[in-house]
């Protein structure tokens, strides 16, 4: 590394860190704006250092494209990125997510009436959730073809187990006292389910749904590595990597990051509306 490059990188780092240290130690550190500002400054410092490193040292922009090049690629490729987004996120990930979620609810409700079954489903489901299920992708691509249907199927299987386990665990999470109260009212199974157990299970269920958003994107993207039409984020990543067009790969990763945090944020937003009463949601 050359001297000027090193000095400028260290200078940028020092300035960024100095601002953040000052902000964190200041009296306004707990305000919303500062809580948002500090990570943003950190991120900008990081991006700036990346840019400087690539430009001022001999690193080839082909190997590590600077952020400016990625931004340019992003801006120039919006139609392609949009098409890939629709193919992978909307058709693959979202469809699979919804299918997996519906199946998980159906199985959980069916098994719920039997204590025997739930005691079996919890450990088996938890076990399955820890497995590298994404490996089923080549099999599903072979069965269902290379278009989005196979991706949706992979996603459905991947999200099924964590959602199922959380629903089943959540439905068991009522105290004996709460259930006894329902019994003193002479409430039946369905009344108890809808008035007590489902609402009480919501924090668990949303936990599962949030975990599943990330899994859905991973499944949809990785499954495309095994075969896809000539559109899709996974397809674009693997072909661009092959052509050493890494700026395009980074642009797709930016899309994946935006999509991932948006999906997660959307589920978390609904969660806040539904489980406003839970201690973790109260302000």
């Amino acid at each position: 590394m050359t001297g000027p490059a090193l000095i400028s990188v260290l200078a940028v780092w020092a300035v960024g860190w100095f601002i953040n240290a000052q902000l964190a130690a200041s009296r306004v550190a707990d305000t919303r704006i500062v809580r948002l500002l500090v990570p943003v400054i950190f991120g900008l410092t990081f991006v700036l250092i990346w840019e400087l490193l690539v430009r001022m040292t001999g690193v080839s922009p082909i190997v590590l494209p600077p952020p400016s090049m990625i931004a340019e690629r992003f801006a120039n490729s919006l139609p392609i990125l949009w098409a890939d987004f629709q193919q992978t996120i909307i058709k693959g990930a979202m469809t699979g997510y919804v299918i997996g979620m519906i199946c998980a609810f159906a199985v959980a409700i069916l098994a719920d009436r039997s204590d025997f079954l739930t005691r079996g489903i919890l450990p088996v489901g938890g076990f399955m959730a820890a497995l590298p299920i994404v490996g089923i992708a080549p099999i599903f691509v072979r069965w269902l073809g290379s278009d989005w249907q196979s991706k949706a199927a992979v996603v459905a299987v991947m999200v099924f187990f964590p959602i199922l386990v959380n629903i089943v665990a959540g439905l068991r999470d009522t105290s004996a006292m709460q259930r006894d109260l329902m019994r003193t009212y002479g409430a039946g199974y369905w009344q108890t389910l809808f008035k007590l157990r489902l609402p009480a299970a919501m924090p668990f269920i949303f936990n599962g749904l949030k975990i599943a958003t990330t899994l859905a994107l991973i499944g949809a993207i990785v499954a495309e590595f095994f075969g896809s039409p000539t559109v899709g984020m996974g397809f674009r990543i693997s072909t661009s990597v092959g052509r050493l067009a890494l700026d395009m790969v980074w642009a797709e990763i930016v899309v994946a990051a935006i999509a991932g945090s948006t999906l997660y944020g959307a589920v978390a937003w609904v969660e806040g509306r539904v489980t406003f009463w839970h201690p973790s949601q109260r302000k």
């Binding site: 949030k210 990330t214 991973i218 990785v222 990597v241 050493l244 990763i253 945090s261 999906l263």
Partner: peptide
Amino acid sequence: QTIPILALAPMIIVM
């Protein structure tokens, strides 16, 4: 935790 960082995998290998 909310973004599919696994998508970086192929690029890391190439880089």
